[in-house]
Amino acid sequence: MQKGRFASAMEVSVITVDLLADATDEVLAALVTEDFDAFAELYGRYLCPVYRFVRSQTPDDSTAEDITAHVFFKAISSAGTFRADGTYKSWIFRIAHNEIYSWRSGNARSVVALEELPESVDPTPSPVAQAITQEDRGMVWRKVAELPPAQREVVALRYLQDLDVEEISGITGRSRGAVRILLHRARLKLRHSMEGDVG
């Protein structure tokens, strides 16, 4: 009878994990101060996107790891300040934006070092990725790295995170018009420089 009425501890644990996996980011964010597993779920969802974004703005893997670590330290220490009137995604990318700018203000190197392509790459690339040669990939990485920091950032947020102008504006603190201009200029540069290099 007991077994019929009460789930075992393991069953409860499985149910809890399932609920967290199904919960929206904003629901999880509201639970973070009470439940580390809620934060762990958010961490699982956002470590890779945040790392990729940070890596696209920094010269090497080691720097990207340190800044990414700071982003998540901030995310957990400021969890109580998250307000559900915006998305968690925008919130955590705004932290990443701030951390990158803090790092950049303390470093003269604002251009990503060309020779330091990422060491760790996705072992399961998409069909499109498989069609692009390593040489082309290096060329694209260099072209993006050569963009001014502000343009490089909006390109990463647009193409890597698929964010729209409104969201990018909220994250970077720039007006929508400024974001559009940055994106337009970056696209022109990339198109012109890459069309000449890719046959």
Partner: peptide
């Protein structure tokens, strides 16, 4: 095409 290549190149790095 160039946008697809940018998207793909930026999405390649993964954390260890």
């Amino acid at each position: 095409v160039y946008e697809t290549m940018v998207q793909e190149a930026l999405a390649r790095p993964v954390p260890r």
